[in-house]
Design a protein around this nucleic acid. Structure first.
Lengths: 205, 205
DNA sequence: TGATTGACTGACCGCGCGTTCAGCGCGATG
DNA sequence: CATCGCGCTGAACGCGCGGTCAGTCAATCA
């Protein structure tokens, strides 16, 4: 047999996935704090207790859901980063990857935003920081490295790459999310054109 | 009498203010959802019940707290907007106003972020949208108008001013908030220099 | 086909929250 | 000094949540 696990494992993974997707949809609809286990279970078409067969508690469900979506985003951005092209094309590819991802995963952005700042008791905050912040930091870090390379090659001016990465990522996110939320028809290229031009050339006449 | 109201009114306003400030501090510490009325009351040095003498319920407390802080931010930005100077100086003044405000009100940024996307039941979400979204929209709108003027005068290139405003506001916020959170020593000018240069001139060599 | 398993269910539990309100104490009044 | 008014208190209430676990039943086994 190709894989050692057949039915059960496949079924398990399917369950895990559909519960995670349900969680994302409910969080997108009600917000992080107001998303209840009951509503997530209903959305997934299972009983509340079933969720606890696959996830220890609510925190773990949220954490795993965030991580698996985030690793997809990272995978896409990484393929753009690894392209061997001039910086402006690479920037365009990265922005396109992010834009496409958020368009295909409209429900994710709410979770994405919520996980940025940990909530709850100090312990909960520490736990979330350990698991979720690294995902952000590594996203910032990867972009910062790309910027650093471009600086070394003289393709762009020299500044603090981390601060620049933050500015680019959050500015772009705001534009992309605004578009995704407003139900406007497809416009990936439009946004990417706008962002690439603004980031590269600034707004000065 | 200068004002028609003396003792009682002054005392009332003081109570309202100190409760709002306590709410901001607790929200900054625990996050929006985990900030309990009990902890806010303790922080303000009053009993839980006392809060309900000044605010109908939790939602109203949060709403009013957000609005009063937000109007301070708006006031500062507005004085920068009304300056009769070239666009680049105006931009610098606006960024300086925001940066200074967030530095003086470290506790506010958490509330600011939380209010951006309404949470809870559909009714709650509608209520929050009616009261808080306008504050954001008007911030975006004001910046967009300044950009439009600059475009008309040929000071900057022509694009969609709203989208540009979003990009600038959120990119700048990310940089400013990162600095405020990281406890780094004063660096308002540093951030403002960085942001002004990047926004105006872009990053291309 | 009867026995056995274990994935799944959902009524139930305890807790902690927002909210209430009967009562307390203290300054003002006469 | 007795009375009153009122700002304030915090124990108590009900609700709705996350989490549990005894029971169900379809698939599997012998």
């Amino acid at each position: 047999m190709a894989s050692s696990k057949s039915k059960e494992e496949v079924v398990q993974e399917f369950r895990v996935q559909s519960i995670q997707e349900a969680a994302m949809r409910v969080i997108a609809r009600k917000g992080m704090a107001a998303a209840t286990m009951q509503e997530i279970a209903d959305e997934a078409g299972v009983a509340k207790g079933t969720i606890y067969l696959y996830f220890r508690d609510r925190d773990e469900l949220v954490e795993k859901t965030f991580e698996s979506a985030m690793s997809q985003l990272h995978a896409r951005v990484d393929t753009a980063i690894e392209l061997d092209v001039p910086f402006d094309q690479k920037l365009r590819a990265m922005l396109g990857a992010v834009s496409t991802f958020f368009r295909e995963n409209r429900e994710f952005f709410r979770l994405y935003i919520s996980m940025r700042f940990p909530e709850g008791s100090p312990q909960q905050q520490r736990r979330q920081k350990r698991t979720c912040q690294p995902q952000y930091q590594s996203r910032v870090q990867r972009v910062a490295e790309v910027l650093q390379q471009a600086m070394d090659r003289g393709e762009i001016g020299v500044t603090d790459p981390r601060r620049l990465a933050l500015f680019i990522i959050e500015g772009s996110n705001a534009v992309i999310i605004d578009r995704v939320m407003s139900e406007a028809p497809s416009s990936v290229d439009d946004d990417v054109d706008f962002l690439t031009a603004t980031i590269l050339g600034g707004i000065k006449k």
